[in-house]
Structure formats: structure tokens, C-alpha cells
Amino acid sequence: MIPFDYERADDARSAVATVAGRPGAVFLGAGTNLVDHMKLGVANPDLLVDVSRLPFDVIEPLQGGGVRIGATVRNSDLAAAPVIRQRYPMLAAALLAGASGQLRNVATTAGNLLQRTRCVYFQDVTTPCNKRRPGSGCSAVEGYTRDHAILGASPHCVAVHPSDMAVALTALDAVVQVEGPSGPRSLAISDLYRLPGDQPQRDTVLEHGELITAVDLPELPMAARSSYRKVRDRASYAFALVSVAAAVDVVDGVMRDVRIALGGVAHKPWRASRAEEALRGAPAAEDAFRHAADAELTEARPLRDNAFKIPMARNTMVTVLRGLTWEEGR
């Protein structure tokens, strides 16, 4: 670990100004990922600006429906919030599927969004990695890829985004509120994250110094019937091999609307737009689910060790949709 400075921010504006003014500065939330990276040499900031105590730890209703989640709301608190459990159950389930109780008790909403891939080569400074050191090469693409991407990868990076929460937020069309050096802006969550392309060092479109202050959930009544299914090797404390967040609106056995996002398959939480499109207006039936899942996965390109993710993603989408619509049939 290399010595660094530490400051506690009093307000968002000054935090943004401080970080924006110093290239080696970063924001510190709970530090559950950043501090690991500092120990490993993956991140070497010279200044930590602690934003974990900014007054963003509230969950509040938005005008016109919807809910605003403050950036520093802890994952455990968010998962336990009645408004989340009742109106957006997939989000509560996704949060509880992530990490461990101890980590969820400290991890923040914004920190969860901005956690970085757990690709073993990214985390090992003795191996090349384009995300860690641009231009050094990707060790994973021809290496150990059991946990890696099947969708949207590039020759430069095949890593996946590790968050469970972000998968649910992607299915929910959440909007990320950002404070930056040149003022505030809002980003649809699907625009926050990037595919790796030839710049895998950039996980998101955020510029240096931009700070997430809140995440807005739109009013979405169908989200009351939603779920999150995480497939993993261990029963707890493991990243997803594949995960599926989905919400359905079924009327008279027909899919009036549907939201699906996948985790563990791409550099960003993967909105399954093709599957959604195939399902809108389709019967809530096994064949339609399977057809939709296959449609989503036509572009999937497995690596050496992860071809299983294609049938796993397909089957998990079908299982989740079956579970959500089965209730309708009762």
C-alpha cells in the first residue's frame, strides 16, 4: 500500500471540487472494494475523499411516484425498506443475494454501482490487464474465463460487472443522479455503464470528479410482481454465474409488459431488450419464454470456460418467468 491523504467531505459540491482538482483523488464510500484494490496495488489513489457521511442516506418518495434512494443508503437498509420490499421486490432480493451480511451493512448504494469487476487478472497486478493498465493486453480472453462475459465483450476485455443490485436497477430503468464539476446531470442506468470496446479501463461514462448522489426508481406498478434469481456455485457469498431480474404484467394469460435484465453475462448489467420485445403480447407460456430467451442469446459468444452460461441464462430466464406468471395462473 502506498501512502495517501484522506479528507472527509462536508458537502457534495466541495467533494466534487476536491476530487476534480486532483487527478489522483477518488471518492471513498464504505471502501469494501476500493480498499481491497489499494492493498492489492490495483488502485493507487493519492487522496481519498470520504463521502460516506454526506447526507444522502435517505429513501424518499419522488413527486409523480417513484422513489429516490440516496447514494449513501446502506445495502442492508435499502433491502429492508418497506417501500422497496413491497413495490420493487426484485431490488430487495438482488441486494440480499449480494456479498455477505457484514458487507451489506456498510456498502453504499453508489459504491455498489461503481464496484469493479472481480476478474482474477484485473485483481492480480502481476498479469496483463487492459482494464487495469490500458494497452497491456487481456489475460482473460485466452485464459480462465469461467466467470466471464458471453455478451457484449470485446477483444480488449471480457470481464463482467459484479453487482446484483445494478441488475435489478437496470430492469427497473433507474435513473442515476450525478453531481459534477460542471453541475448536476441525470443518466439512465443503462447509459451509465459501458461495454468495454477499446476502452475497458472505463466501466462507466462518469468523468473524473463526478459523484453519484442518488438513484431514482420510476413509478412502475408491475415491479410489485418481480423477482431476482441468482445462480451461483455456493449457496451464499459468491458472485453470480448468471442472474436474472424480471418483472411481469400479465393480463388474461398474455404478457402485457415485461422487464428483464441479466447479470454475470456482460461488462454491464444486461438489459434483455430482445427477450422483452419477443414477449410483449405473447402468451405467458413456456414456449414463449424459451423463444424469448433464445432470442436474447443469439448474439452470445462463449469463451473457453463459459459456454455453460448460455443454457444457464436461457434456463434461468425461463425459470424466473415461469415463477412470476405461475402465480397469475393460481
Partner: peptide, 8 residues
């Protein structure tokens, strides 16, 4: 699990 292959 018949669909996901998870083993417990």
C-alpha cells in the same frame, strides 16, 4: 436444480 444445475 433441474434448470440451473445448481447443486446443494
Amino acid at each position: 436444480h433441474a434448470d440451473t444445475g445448481e447443486i446443494r
